[in-house]
Design a protein around this nucleic acid. Sequence first.
DNA 1: CTCCGTGCAAATACTTTGCAAAGCG
DNA 2: CGCTTTGCAAAGTATTTGCACGGAG
Lengths: 134, 134
Amino acid sequence: MKAHNYSRKRQAICELLMSTREHPSAEWIYNKLKPEYPDLSLGTVYRNLKLLESDGVIHSVTVLDGIERYDAVTDSHAHFVCRYCGKIDDVHIPHNFNSLHESLGVEVKKVPGIGEIEYSNIIYYGKCDECINK
Amino acid sequence: MKAHNYSRKRQAICELLMSTREHPSAEWIYNKLKPEYPDLSLGTVYRNLKLLESDGVIHSVTVLDGIERYDAVTDSHAHFVCRYCGKIDDVHIPHNFNSLHESLGVEVKKVPGIGEIEYSNIIYYGKCDECINK
DNA sequence: CTCCGTGCAAATACTTTGCAAAGCG
DNA sequence: CGCTTTGCAAAGTATTTGCACGGAG
């Protein structure tokens, strides 16, 4: 109960991102944390998201309908976005995919005539099972 | 010289997108077309981009620094984004990639427990050759 | 005392929209 | 004429930022 305010909220934002598979937006995080931190402000969430992102702790998955969505999971780079309900799921990357991307993520891969790849982002768009079943 | 205004500007926007590899933003298109269509307004560009997108004629490649970037090329779904200068290049998709995605694009692919993939978007981030050479 | 983190509100920046005018068939 | 397209400017919305305050060491 001693470490009072030092990065308490930043910690909470980070942990929330790590503990969910929702790929949250700033506002989602804000609403989720507001009950426990009544004096939390949206600006702080935005500030900390940018900070955590530049520290490499979290990543921006995509911008969906103008809203940035984040992710703290680092092992999988593939996502499935439901075009109908907006849900974002993690997608297990197939094996032949791995053979191509095995060195990506942290390592650098050269593409002739283009440049050096530092990381990649693979997104599938479609209709999730829930939306298929009405 | 007869068909004067019917979708003349929409046509121009579409053709411009087809003829470039720049993956333009709304403003880029606006500036490019403004000399030839002095009465063009930015709102019209935005409107037509949305319209062309919903018609499936063009696609949104990504949102880079809060700015939406479009593409009218349909055969390749992979892009390279330079994190340093913001340039977006088309990337030739490797063979083993094709084996996985050969049916994607228009067709539908099911992912167990997730949903049906309608299309995919693959983006590589890194440093382009120009930026590597200072 | 000094620094970092924050609330609050104003400011940005891109995009969307309402409306009236103009075009096309 | 009826429907579409557009310019213009106002509105909208997500995000960023300036400033002063508060807590920690």
